[in-house]
């Protein structure tokens, strides 16, 4: 039976081969544009400071066709994009690289692959959508056109980048299970924004958003602790009162031991490096970045 079957199949194969004989592909003509794109000075700076060392692509040009047309958004300003790229590297990538035991390798292994800049927030009609970290590979930075370089430490970007990077670390090594059990009953996934800063603090949350889910709480403790000055952090504890601040400090210890055991990063060193860098940017000239 098998023999009878294979004979025609062999014949068929011969015909198929024959039928393609006259359809030689032209190997000299690619359907892809393989010419080297022209890079401007900013593109070169990004290549040398983000892409080559860390394999991070910074997309500062908006191609709306790649976003959802239902959202209203505008592109980032070129000058603001340059300032943003410089500042995020200085206050985030370089800070981690300085502190992490294996420096550059830590950033290479854990940084997002794509950073996308948008000029405004994204609006779905009148509802605003802020930046998101998608699956640990892409971070969208919205409202780039609102950046005031020397005030960045007071603007949302500073906290947001450390918040989103915290999520990426958590996606590789999950948050400790016993963090979830500190205030399990206080999370309000859909109504967290009904609490003000004071109410949230009294319940043991460093911000309103921390009260959403344990995962958000964890990265908020991390981000707020390292980006806030000691005075600002103390103000949060004061706002929380005795009971609230005791909870926040317990959470902080969980974050501290997670960073140490999972990532070999000392939280105090990280905080002091970020605080020092926040001061240093005050002496930089953002109108003459040189690229």
């Amino acid at each position: 039976m098998k023999k009878i079957f294979y004979t025609p199949v062999l014949l068929l194969t011969v015909f198929v081969l024959a039928s393609c004989e006259k359809d030689e592909p032209d190997y000299n003509r690619s359907i892809f544009d393989t010419s080297t794109p022209e890079l401007n000075s900013f593109d070169k700076w990004l290549r040398d400071n983000y892409t080559t060392p860390y394999n991070i692509v910074v997309k500062y040009k908006l191609h709306d066709v790649e976003t959802d047309f239902a959202y209203n958004v505008i592109p980032a300003d070129l000058t603001k994009s340059k300032q943003m790229a410089f500042l995020l590297k200085y206050l985030w990538i370089d800070a981690y690289q300085e502190v992490a035991g294996d420096g550059i390798h830590f950033v290479r292994a854990n940084a997002p692959r794509l950073m996308h800049y948008l000029g405004s927030a994204e609006y779905d009609n009148e509802t605003m959508r802020l930046g998101v970290a998608e699956g640990g590979t892409k971070i969208t930075i919205t409202e780039v056109n609102h950046l005031i370089p020397k005030d960045i430490i007071k603007q949302n970007f500073f906290n947001t980048i450390h918040h989103e990077f915290g999520h990426i670390l958590n996606q590789t090594i999950d948050i400790p299970a016993d963090f979830r059990t500190i205030t399990p009953a206080s999370y309000a996934p859909t109504t967290w924004y009904n609490r003000d800063e004071y109410e949230a603090a009294r319940l043991g949350f460093v911000s309103q958003y921390a009260g959403k889910l344990p995962e958000e709480d964890f990265v908020e403790v991390l981000a707020r602790y390292i980006t806030r000055t000691p005075e600002e952090w103390q103000a949060t504890l004061d706002l929380a009162g005795d009971e609230g601040s005791a909870i926040i400090l317990r959470k902080l210890e969980k974050v501290r031991s997670y960073m140490k055991t999972s990532w070999k990063i000392d939280l105090e060193t990280l905080k002091s490096v970020i605080q020092r860098r926040s001061q240093e940017i005050q002496f930089m000239d953002f109108d003459n970045l040189g690229f």
Partner: peptide, 8 residues
Amino acid sequence: VCINFVTY
């Protein structure tokens, strides 16, 4: 073929 204004 499109013209896109990609920065602000």
